[in-house]
Amino acid sequence: MHEVAIVDALIAQVEEEVRRAGVSGKVVRLDLSIGRLSGVSVDAIRFALELLAPGTIVESAQVEIRQPAAVVCCAACDHRAEVEQIPVRCPRCGSRELTIEGGREMLLESIELEESPS
């Protein structure tokens, strides 16, 4: 359940970003990217949010979670493909010279606030 620690860090980060932007108001939406190879369960993130959000800045936020796939890139034949599992060889030419792009990220993309009339 390291998702609890991740959500805890996320809430602190939202507080910091909002403070830094110098705005006040209710956070209504959060956009996150959690890569499919990040080792994090999106269900567990949602569960941890239910647990930790009440009483914090994100308590009434709608949370959108994008789950980008990993892209395997072959140095030999320039083949690029989205994969669920990291392959040993290029599915097209069989080369082992593969690099993996993305799929492991865990990002807070954006925060949407409903500004309170001052």
Partner: peptide, 14 residues
């Protein structure tokens, strides 16, 4: 208003 953060969630730990 929208704040574009585009930051790692475990940034503080990293």
């Amino acid at each position: 208003m929208k704040i574009i953060a585009a930051k790692k969630i475990l940034k503080a730990n990293d």
